[in-house]
C-alpha cells in the first residue's frame, strides 16, 4: 500500500496531465472531425476524396507509429514541438478520423427531407449543412462521441512513450522500479476508472440535454 500512498502526489499530477491531454486533444479532434465529416458529404469530389484519404490513412496506422514519426522523425524537417504538444496533436489527428466517421454516420441518420426542405427554401450546401443538418446530426452522435472520448482517455497513455509524465508514465516508472508492480497496476487501473466512469455519466446527461423532444 505504501507505494501508492507515498506516490500520491505524482499520481495526482499524472492524473492531471492525463486529463489535460485528453481534453485538449478531444477538442482538437472535434474540430478536425467536423471538417472531415463536412468534406465527406460535400458535393465537391476532390474534398470528398481528401476526406476519405484522411480517414483511411489515419485509421490504418497505429497511433504510436504516428506519434513516433512526428516526435522523432519530423524534427529532421524542422518541425519540433514539445512532448505534450506532440502527443496532443497526434491524438487529436488520430481521434479525428473516428470522430469524422461518427459525425458522418450522424448526418446519415438525419432524414433526407430535412436537406430537401432546406434546398427548397433556397439554402446553399454550406447553409443546409451548417444550419439544418449538422445541428440535428450532432445530437444523435453524442453517445458515440462520448465513447470515443473514453477511448481517447485510454490512448493518452501513448504519451508515456515520449516521456510525458501522465498516469501511465508515472505508473510504469513505479512498476519498473519497485517490487510492488501488482499494487501499482491496480492503483492505476482504479485511477483510469475514476476518469472514465464519470465520463459515461456526463455523456448520458449531455445526451438528455440535447435530445429533441417530439
Amino acid at each position: 500500500m505504501e507505494v501508492l500512498l507515498n506516490n500520491l502526489d505524482s499520481f495526482g499530477s499524472g492524473l492531471r496531465l492525463t486529463v489535460a491531454l485528453a481534453l485538449t486533444s478531444f477538442s482538437g479532434a472535434l474540430a478536425i472531425g467536423l471538417v472531415i465529416a463536412a468534406f465527406r458529404v460535400s458535393p465537391v469530389p476532390p474534398l470528398r476524396a481528401a476526406g476519405a484519404f484522411y480517414v483511411e490513412t489515419i485509421r490504418n496506422i497505429p497511433p504510436l507509429v504516428l506519434l513516433l514519426v512526428f516526435y522523432f522523425g519530423f524534427p529532421d524537417i524542422g518541425i519540433v514541438y514539445s512532448e505534450f504538444v506532440s502527443a496532443a496533436l497526434i491524438l487529436a489527428i488520430y481521434t479525428a478520423a473516428f470522430v469524422g466517421e461518427a459525425i458522418r454516420a450522424g448526418i446519415n441518420t438525419v432524414s433526407r427531407g430535412q436537406a430537401e426542405a432546406a434546398r427548397a427554401i433556397g439554402l446553399t450546401f454550406t447553409q443546409t449543412l451548417g444550419l439544418v443538418v449538422m445541428p440535428q446530426a450532432l445530437r444523435s452522435v453524442v453517445p458515440p462521441l462520448g465513447n470515443l472520448f473514453i477511448a481517447l482517455v485510454k490512448n493518452t497513455s501513448l504519451a508515456s512513450v515520449i516521456s510525458v509524465a501522465e498516469l501511465t508514465f508515472i505508473s510504469k516508472r513505479l512498476i519498473t522500479s519497485t517490487a510492488q508492480g501488482l499494487l501499482v497496476f491496480l492503483g492505476t487501473a482504479i485511477a483510469y476508472l475514476i476518469l472514465t466512469l464519470p465520463a459515461g455519466w456526463v455523456i448520458g446527461r449531455i445526451e438528455q440535454k440535447v435530445s429533441i423532444r417530439r
Partner: peptide, 22 residues
Amino acid sequence: EFFRGFPLILLIVFSFFTLPRL
C-alpha cells in the same frame, strides 16, 4: 469491465515487468 477499462500499454508493461516477479 476491468480489462477494457485501462490502457493496453500499461497491461503490456505489467505483464513484462511484474509477472516474472510474481
